Computed example of a mutant assay.
Amino acid sequence: MKRGFGSDNHAGIHPQILNSLAKANIEHAPSYGTDEWTEQANENFRQHFGKDAQVFFVFNGTAANVTALRALTRPYHSVLCADVSHINVDECGAPELLAGCKLVAIPTTNGKMKVEDLEKAFIRRGDQHYSQAQVLSITQPTELGTTYSLEELKSLITWAKSKKLYVHIDGARIANAAAYLKKSFKEFTTDLGVDVVSFGGTKNGLMMGEAVVFLNKELAQDFKYIRKQSTQLPSKTRFIACQFQAYLENGLWKEIADHSYTMALYLYEAVRNIPGVTVREIPQSNAVFATIPSHWVKTLREKYFFYVWDENTFECRWMTSWDTQKEDIDGFAELLKELAK
């Protein structure tokens, strides 16, 4: 399949991460996270998030979100989340089925929530007939490719803490946010009072695997049971851990994020002035959202795969990744220009 713009999880494994798997594939090692690779990866996470960070590896992003929310809620609780968030739109109801909590979708502007809209949803406290808000879940970057600024995050998190809510970050692409903000992971999570992060790997050059990172260590106390009960305890944990070790310890995460963002900006510049293409805004992560005539889609996707984000408006999502090359973008832009004639 030719490189396209469907998703960053369409890309293969980054060579350095693939090499880490080969290096870990030696002799025998203890199972269930008691190996040396897991110990080192945990230390890598603590270096980025703080000494109290508690790390648990799982198989995929939905599992990271669901198990994290299970740790923060009981069945009579609700989670305030963006209307376009992955947990609300793209997890097939898994948080509500498996965590047992209710999701309350908050209207957004370009994927971002605002305090005034959260206030409207924070109602009926103590009413036994109504699910009680317990968690604010923030996607960073958002599903629309926008990135909350540090001030925007402070505003949301300060509000949540004033209401005694836990704060969860869906960070499937959190490295892209760090690169865009030019901040360390710790500066826009731990230091602001975030309780738990779903930390993405699969979309960032790993073969598979995500991490649930508790920054409020008290909440991690029983998580090992939740992970096991949720069928997310890897037996050969070293093969997830070794990938995160390679990803985190020597700045590979930043190299990948910087490249994919640079490619998104290059894509934006290449297409923004083409007649018939309406780009939502300058990229703030590794995604370009653009509306195109519906009859262009089939021809474009025959050579460069991508997803139609909104089937009513034909707004499309074009994602870049660690292996996107300028020639991929140049070819795509030329095809758009041909269709625009």
Rank of each mutant, 00 (worst) to 15 (best):
5 F>L: 15
5 F>V: 12
8 D>S: 15
8 D>E: 11
9 N>V: 05
12 G>I: 11
12 G>R: 11
14 H>Y: 02
16 Q>T: 14
28 H>V: 13
32 Y>W: 10
32 Y>R: 01
33 G>K: 02
35 D>G: 07
36 E>R: 02
38 T>K: 06
38 T>G: 06
39 E>H: 10
43 E>H: 02
48 H>E: 04
52 D>K: 08
57 F>L: 07
58 V>P: 11
59 F>V: 08
59 F>N: 12
59 F>A: 04
60 N>S: 06
63 A>M: 07
64 A>H: 03
64 A>E: 04
68 A>D: 05
71 A>M: 12
74 R>Q: 00
75 P>A: 08
77 H>R: 05
78 S>H: 00
89 V>K: 11
91 E>V: 08
96 E>L: 01
101 C>H: 14
108 T>I: 04
113 M>D: 01
113 M>K: 09
114 K>R: 15
115 V>R: 08
117 D>M: 14
117 D>G: 01
120 K>S: 08
121 A>N: 11
122 F>Y: 15
127 D>M: 07
127 D>R: 02
129 H>Y: 10
131 S>W: 08
131 S>A: 13
136 L>K: 07
137 S>A: 15
137 S>Q: 07
146 T>R: 12
148 Y>T: 02
153 L>S: 06
156 L>R: 11
158 T>I: 11
160 A>D: 03
162 S>F: 11
163 K>I: 09
163 K>W: 10
166 Y>V: 08
167 V>M: 00
168 H>M: 14
169 I>S: 06
169 I>A: 10
171 G>D: 03
172 A>T: 00
172 A>D: 01
174 I>L: 15
179 A>T: 04
180 Y>Q: 01
182 K>N: 15
183 K>P: 06
183 K>M: 15
185 F>Y: 08
186 K>S: 07
190 T>R: 00
191 D>G: 00
192 L>Q: 12
193 G>F: 05
193 G>R: 12
202 T>R: 02
204 N>I: 03
204 N>T: 01
205 G>K: 09
206 L>R: 13
208 M>W: 10
214 F>R: 02
214 F>W: 06
215 L>A: 03
215 L>W: 04
216 N>C: 09
216 N>H: 13
217 K>Y: 10
217 K>E: 09
218 E>R: 15
219 L>V: 09
220 A>S: 15
220 A>F: 06
226 I>M: 12
228 K>N: 15
232 Q>V: 10
233 L>D: 05
234 P>K: 12
236 K>M: 04
237 T>G: 09
238 R>Y: 14
238 R>F: 13
240 I>F: 13
252 L>V: 02
253 W>E: 00
260 S>R: 03
260 S>K: 07
261 Y>H: 13
271 V>L: 07
273 N>R: 01
273 N>K: 13
273 N>F: 00
274 I>G: 01
275 P>S: 05
275 P>E: 04
288 V>T: 08
303 K>S: 13
306 F>P: 09
306 F>S: 06
306 F>I: 08
310 D>T: 04
310 D>G: 04
311 E>A: 14
312 N>F: 12
319 M>N: 13
320 T>L: 02
321 S>Y: 07
321 S>R: 04
322 W>A: 05
323 D>Y: 11
326 K>A: 13
328 D>E: 13
333 A>P: 11
337 K>I: 04
339 L>G: 07
